[in-house]
Computed example of a mutant assay.
Amino acid sequence: MAEAWKHTALLVIDMQKDLILPYSPASVKGGEAIVPNVIKAVEVARSRDIPIIWVVREHDSLGRDVELFRRHFYTADKTKLVVKGSPGAELVEGLESKPHDYKLIKTRFSAFLNTNLHSYLQGAGISKIVVSGVQTPNCIRQTVFDAVSLDYEVTVIVDATAAATSEIHNANVLDMKNIGVATPTIEEWCHINNYYTTLSCS
């Protein structure tokens, strides 16, 4: 079965404490709810020998590499968000990077902008990407649209991605479907190609 997934990679985007957990001013309201499904997606990817790419934000403590609209989070009286080496930049509980996984650091919405993601995927012979994480209208959408522009076949696991509201999420999923992106649920993705796993996908 691993041969069927030879040219596929799983991207797990921004599943970090400062972006998921409710204590943070930058948390995505729907983020905590999808953690179990993102965990399942990672488990299934490992069982299929699909490479896992942890796409994360890691910023300078002074916010010098962050978008202009977010720089107010980095003033002296604020708690800095997803600063490199800080607890808030860590993956949420239940998600763990393994030594053979790939960590990609970005400072903007798209995982392709000013990163080596495209060259990494090309070098690994990857032509299909599966996307999970947060949030749908920003980092998910821009990464997906860039991937489609670069001629990757793209799948977004719809219940392993999230936005602030279901309305925002669903509207952006529809836009991605309209450009040819596959949008299975985690249950459907578990059983693609008649794949059955002893892992619990329900």
Rank of each mutant, 00 (worst) to 15 (best):
G88N: 10
D151R: 12
K84W: 02
A162F: 03
A124C: 14
K128T: 15
L174P: 08
H169G: 02
R108M: 07
S119C: 10
A147E: 05
I179S: 07
V173T: 10
F145L: 15
M176A: 01
S119K: 14
I140D: 04
S149N: 13
D175P: 00
L121R: 00
V156G: 02
D151P: 02
M176G: 00
H169F: 06
Y102C: 04
I129M: 09
A147T: 08
L150G: 00
E167Y: 08
I105C: 07
A147I: 06
V173G: 00
V92Y: 08
H100V: 13
L104W: 00
V144L: 12
V156F: 10
E90G: 12
G94H: 09
S149C: 14
L150A: 06
R108K: 14
L113P: 05
K128G: 03
Y152V: 07
G125A: 08
A124G: 12
D151G: 07
T161I: 07
L104C: 03
A160P: 05
A160K: 03
K84L: 11
T155H: 03
K177S: 13
H169W: 03
R141I: 07
C139P: 04
A163V: 06
L91F: 12
G133Q: 02
V134D: 02
K106D: 01
G85T: 08
T107Q: 15
S86F: 04
L174S: 14
S132F: 03
A171F: 09
S166T: 15
V173H: 08
V158W: 03
L95H: 02
V148K: 07
G133D: 06
V154H: 05
L95I: 12
N172K: 10
K106Y: 08
D159G: 08
G85A: 08
Y102E: 06
T136E: 02
G85V: 05
G123D: 11
G85Y: 09
A124S: 12
V131D: 05
K103F: 04
G125W: 11
H169L: 06
I140Q: 02
E153L: 10
G180Q: 03
I105H: 00
Q122A: 10
A163P: 02
E96L: 13
G133T: 06
V154K: 00
T161M: 09
G94E: 13
A147M: 11
K177H: 13
K106S: 03
P137C: 08
S97L: 10
E96M: 10
I126T: 08
Q142H: 15
F109A: 11
V148P: 02
I168K: 05
N178T: 13
V154A: 00
R108D: 09
N178S: 11
R141D: 12
S132D: 07
C139Y: 08
A163K: 02
T107P: 00
D175A: 14
R141V: 09
L117A: 00
S119T: 14
L117M: 07
V156Q: 01
S119E: 15
G133H: 01
L174Y: 13
Y102D: 06
P87F: 04
A160M: 06
L150F: 05
G125K: 07
S149D: 15
D151V: 09
Q135W: 14
T161N: 11
V158M: 14
K103N: 10
S127Y: 12
Q122V: 05
S166A: 13
G133F: 00
I168S: 14
S86G: 04
T115V: 09
T115D: 06
